[in-house]
Each structure stands twice: as C-alpha cells, then as structure tokens.
C-alpha cells in the first residue's frame, strides 16, 4: 500500500521511518556515492527536520518499507533550491504553492525481490511515481521538481512522464545529478496508468473512523 506520512503522525510509524533512513543510506551513500550526511547506518539531512511529507510504499501491516520519496513545498526551504540555486539560477523560479519538490526517491530492491519477486525494479520505481502523481493531484500540486541520476530518465520515460531538465549538478559527489520538473495532471495520470497497466487508484487519503463532521452533526 501507499501512504503519506506527515509530521503530525511521525510517531505512529517509527519502524517505517527508521527503515527509510537506513534504506537511504544504502542507496544514496553506498550505491550511488552521493555526498549525503551519514551517521552510522542512517542517512538524514537538515530537510528531514523541516516536517516534510514522506510518501511510503509498504506492506499492508505497515511494517516493511519497499520505497519512499520525500516531498516539500517549494514555497518553503527546499534542498533543490539550496543545492541548485548557484549552478542553475533557473531553479530559483520554481517557487509557488502548486509546485513541490520530490527528493531521496528510492526502492528497497532486496526486500521487494523477497516479498514481491514478480515486480521488477524499474516497474517498482514507476509504481512509486504513479503513486506520487496521485498524491500530487489529490493535493492540488500541478508541478513536481525532482533530482535523480541521469540513467533514471529511461524509467521516467517508460512511466509516461515527460521530464523537463533544468540542469545538472556535480555538487552531490562522483556523478552528476539531474534536476527536472514534470507536469502533474489528469492527462499525465491517465497516460501513466495506461503505460503501467493500472486501472484503479493506488493511493488513498487515510480517513479516521469518526470524522469531525460526524461529531458535529451528532451534536446538532
């Protein structure tokens, strides 16, 4: 299942969050050699302290994390703004309430291969992108800004996403990292669903058993 975890509910998912920081260390530091802050077996940076939203892909019991991406509004402090600002002045302009940045997107390929051998890694990444598209539409986001290693472009294309590259930065470490925007709309969503052979929504906003309206109407 896909779920969004925001600051008011971090305390509900300590296991998933811990797995996330460990996964990020394995992916971004060990595999991709990105210059990211690592402490022991976890990778965590300053932006994790700014109450970002984590879009998580996990099992239904919410005990195992398969993938994650971190989301922040571009109106606030963001990683891409800070990192790419000097190299690519254009990024400065991507600052509006309907534009969000997605960073540290990754998949736990080992765990996924164990639990879901039928899902190949590229497809898994595409599914996470599809969930991201649904989350964005649901919340009035029309554009995503994201960073990724150049070879990921292929996956984006296969998912039906058109990326508009803003530039590349070598400030991350060994290899250049791309910074791109992509459009979020119902047309894009339809295209992605078609490419991936998905017909129904894969993300749903979690609702409480009793809502505020229930209490209010009951009192009426």
């Amino acid at each position: 299942m896909f779920l969004t975890v925001q600051a008011h509910e971090y305390h509900k998912y300590p296991t998933l969050l811990k797995q996330m920081f460990k996964l990020r260390k394995r992916v971004f530091s060990d595999q991709l050699n990105w210059d990211v802050p690592v402490k022991g077996d976890i990778e965590k940076d300053a932006y994790d302290g700014l109450n970002p939203v984590y879009l998580m892909w996990c099992n239904d019991e919410k005990t195992k994390l398969y993938g994650v991406v971190r989301l922040m509004p571009t109106t606030g402090p963001t990683l891409l703004y800070d990192v790419f600002r000097n190299t690519f002045p254009d990024v400065v302009s991507f600052e509006a309430p309907g534009i969000w940045e997605g960073t540290r997107m990754c998949i736990d390929q080992e765990l996924l291969a164990k639990d879901h051998p039928e899902i190949e890694p590229g497809y898994a990444f595409s599914m996470l992108l599809l969930a991201l598209c649904e989350v964005a539409i649901k919340h009035g986001i029309h554009t995503m800004v994201s960073n990724y290693e150049p070879q990921m472009k292929r996956v984006y294309r296969r998912t039906g996403i058109e990326v508009n590259e803003l530039g590349r930065s070598s400030e991350y470490g060994k290899y250049p990292v791309c910074c791109s925007t992509f459009e979020v709309s119902n047309q894009v969503l339809e295209k992605m669903r078609k490419k991936l052979g998905v017909s129904a929504p894969i993300y749903q906003v979690a609702l409480p058993k009793r809502s505020i309206a229930d209490y209010v109407l009951e009192a009426a």
């Binding site: 969004t4 109450n51 922040m72 509004p73 919340h139 979690a206 505020i212 309206a213 209490y215 209010v216």
Partner: peptide, 26 residues
Amino acid sequence: LRALPYAWSEIEPDEEAIELLVDFQS
C-alpha cells in the same frame, strides 16, 4: 505540522477537541 492541504474530515479529533466541535456547531 502537516504540509499538504487537508479536508477536516481527515482529522481524528481527541476527547478534548470534541467539546470544541460541539460548541462550534452550536
């Protein structure tokens, strides 16, 4: 604490808050 926009129906009110909501409605 949240960052994404939300409908109030997504919120689970605690005991204290229910009093406020009843009052709000009245």
